[in-house]
Design a protein around this nucleic acid. Structure first.
Length: 233
DNA sequence: GCGACAG
DNA sequence: ATCTTGTCGC
């Protein structure tokens, strides 16, 4: 089990959240701790909502490079923070943390359904959870939160930089030919170039890379089949 | 003040 | 994220 490096109070107001985010920024590392050859376990994390103010977090662990599912965990947590762009981790973080407690695998890289450092204060969901658990994390978002980018070329694998306040914070990556790009940014313990490369390594025939795509499919399954049962927990 | 705005 | 059927295109 992966133990959190620090315990953060998630039941805070936005002002405290801003302070926490600004403090977390100082702890982000960009040096990738592994040799590419020694990565054999990856994970995808998807966060979403259920009705009744329940947040759902799914973590799926995969073997690499086979990308076979080796573990799936999920948890539901009542949200006590509204959805405000820039504060997603305070809404979904508790559910993610709860799922981490259930995870037995030790993935070497985590792909998150959200931003890494491409965030108003440099601490998106991927970075926040990355710092909290001292893990390698990458933000893979379906839409842009902050910054500007020029349209990347149409072939799969093409990308352009996302700039924010004159800083290069991420990439608009064409994960499939001629589809809307995905927005990749480092979460923690990895740089932008490696974030792009690893994202491409786990991207198949779909726009969304396999780790988060599969995690999202499990989230859908949970919503369809197990909601009533889980609501009593 | 107005518009933008991960999931 | 969610409300929602068929349909146009690679």
């Amino acid at each position: 089990m992966i133990q959190p490096k620090h315990i953060f109070p998630f039941d805070v107001n936005t002002q405290e959240a801003v302070r926490i985010q600004k403090d977390l920024t100082q702890h982000i590392s960009f040096s990738f701790p592994f040799h590419p050859q020694e990565v054999h376990c990856l994970a995808g994390v998807d966060v979403s909502y259920l009705k009744k103010n329940l947040a759902c977090a799914v973590i799926v662990a995969f073997s690499y490079p086979e990308l076979q599912v080796i573990e799936v965990v999920h948890s539901l947590k009542k949200v006590q923070f509204p959805y405000i762009p820039g504060f997603l981790s305070f809404r979904e973080g508790p559910a993610v943390a709860s799922s981490f407690q259930l995870l037995k695998s030790i993935p070497q890289i985590f792909f998150f359904d959200g931003q890494g450092i491409a965030h108003p204060r440099g601490v998106g969901l991927a970075s926040h959870m990355g710092i909290l658990y001292n893990i390698v994390s990458i933000g893979v978002a379906k839409s842009l939160l902050v910054g500007q980018y020029t349209e990347p070329l149409l072939e799969k694998g093409e990308y352009s930089w996302i700039f924010y306040h004159d800083q290069k914070i991420g990439a608009a990556l064409r994960s499939r030919k001629a589809v809307k790009p995905i927005f990749v940014s480092p979460g923690h313990r990895i740089d932008l170039q490696n974030s792009i490369e690893w994202t491409l390594r786990v991207t198949g025939k779909y726009r969304i890379p396999e780790p988060t795509r599969i995690a999202h499919l499990y989230a859908d399954k949970i919503k369809r089949n197990e909601v009533e049962f889980l609501e009593h927990q």
